[in-house]
Simulated assay, not measured.
Amino acid sequence: MIVDLLLILRSLFEEHLQALNLQEQLRIHLYEIARERDPFFATAGHFFVQEYIGQELAQWGSVEIHTFVVRGKTCNNLILNLSSQTIGKHQDLSPILIGAHYDAVPGTPGADDNATGVAVLLELARKFAAEPAKYPLRLVAFDMEEYGLLGSAEYAGLLHQQQQSLRLMISLEMLGYCNSTPGSQAYPRPLEKFYPNQGDFIALIGNLRTIRDLISLSRNIRKAGLPSQWLPVPNRGLIVPQTRLSDHAPFWDLGYPAIMVTDTAFLRNPNYHKPSDNIASLDLDFLTSVCQGLEQGIRRLA
């Protein structure tokens, strides 16, 4: 009995220590990424963050650069491919693409939008490089999201042209703002009738092809101790335009199964696209739980 109790306590301590280590890693990434980095008006910051992401991903494999041109400027999506578990039956599975945009609008350090998404992307790369998932993973840092989802549209179009199938696309879009005050969460009508009015959950929004994955990912995020809500949307999200405001939308448009993971952006965070979108405004416990839940959820996708 005492031995069993000691084993349980040891396991709980190790889990707590792992969470603290993960939170510190996320904090380090945030302090490197959260800076002005508009690709036209803050080119030094944009270049610095691009280099930082490339160096971090390169620890785990060869980083592919997908280039495209906008207004005469060469832009870069950064891509890391991670192999699946080495069991033979898994070798031909289509990859799961996990993406996050690294550009920001002028005049903001973009801590929540979208340094949080990139920080989680980098930590997922570290975790899945050390212990591969069932599916091969493709981790993509998208450029030019704030100018109309241009990086993800270019890349989705390339995959479609190459007839590349995807098991799932997951867009990490603002993951670190939490407010448990009643009335802190807004919605496009009439969703307020069906979802909580306090902004203390992470939202999963997918097209109809992803309903099983929405349920599975949401369940695993809740197991990590974080409330989670999910929403399936028909017709590429056109009926609720707010559901299309990230890098999953070009994948919806081309028929891919895709999910946005988000703290709901301007529907909750008053710092959206403002100078006040800084690290001090974030809840790092919340962000850490999102990362933990996503890792476990991705590992358990059927």
Rank of each mutant, 00 (worst) to 15 (best):
S281P: 11
P39T: 10
N77A: 06
N81H: 04
W252Q: 09
A119D: 07
I79N: 07
V49I: 11
N179G: 07
M1K: 01
S218P: 12
S184P: 01
V63C: 06
E295M: 12
L7F: 05
F41Y: 13
A104H: 10
Q50K: 15
I279F: 05
K127M: 14
L158T: 04
D277R: 02
L159M: 13
L30V: 08
E123K: 06
P234F: 11
D213Q: 13
K223I: 14
Y195C: 01
Q85T: 03
D38E: 03
I87H: 14
N21A: 12
P106G: 08
L208K: 13
P232N: 04
H160L: 07
G151L: 08
E36D: 06
G110A: 07
T116Q: 03
Y102G: 06
N207R: 04
P106T: 05
F40D: 10
S62R: 12
D112K: 12
Q164Y: 01
K89T: 10
Y177Q: 11
G54K: 09
L5E: 13
I96T: 03
D38L: 02
T210Q: 00
L175F: 02
F48K: 14
L204K: 05
P182E: 12
E146D: 15
A203E: 09
Y177W: 04
T116W: 11
I79K: 01
F128K: 14
F41P: 06
E36W: 03
E154D: 13
D253E: 14
P232W: 05
P109G: 04
L17N: 12
P132Y: 07
L150K: 13
Q25N: 11
G99N: 12
I65Y: 01
R244S: 05
S94G: 07
L214T: 01
R37H: 13
Y187T: 00
D277K: 11
L12A: 07
A19G: 03
S180L: 10
L150I: 11
E14I: 13
P232I: 00
G107L: 03
A153Y: 05
M1Q: 05
H66Q: 03
D92R: 15
L217W: 02
L5Y: 07
N278A: 11
Q242H: 08
S216H: 12
